[in-house]
């Protein structure tokens, strides 16, 4: 899709392994730090939360906004990224 960012394509293109939480699209330095403070230090831990919320992007978006202070666009970008990763690798 032409509307997705390079970061999004990079993340969705391969298994996430031990990638840091900031490798998720929509999650930059600031949000990454906030997430790490709450124990979400790896992208895979955030994926865990996404799975706990039954891959529901709406619920996940709401959670991410609450947990990290992300705005709607960032949160949805992250949710979309995880969703597509799941579609490809789960």
């Amino acid at each position: 899709m032409s509307t997705t960012s390079q970061k999004h394509r990079d993340f969705v293109g391969e298994p996430m392994g031990d990638k840091p939480v900031t490798s998720l699209s929509g999650i930059g330095e600031t949000l990454g730090k906030k997430l790490e403070e709450q124990g979400f230090d790896k992208a895979s831990v955030v994926l865990g939360q996404f799975l706990l919320l039954k891959k529901d992007t709406e619920l996940f978006t709401e959670w991410l906004k609450d947990a990290s202070g992300a705005n709607s666009r960032q949160a949805r970008s992250c949710a979309q990224c995880l969703k597509e990763w799941c579609d490809a690798f789960l």
Partner: peptide, 10 residues
């Protein structure tokens, strides 16, 4: 691009 911008109103 990928950088986050915290102040985007939506």
């Amino acid at each position: 691009g990928n950088r986050e911008s915290d102040h985007v109103a939506e």
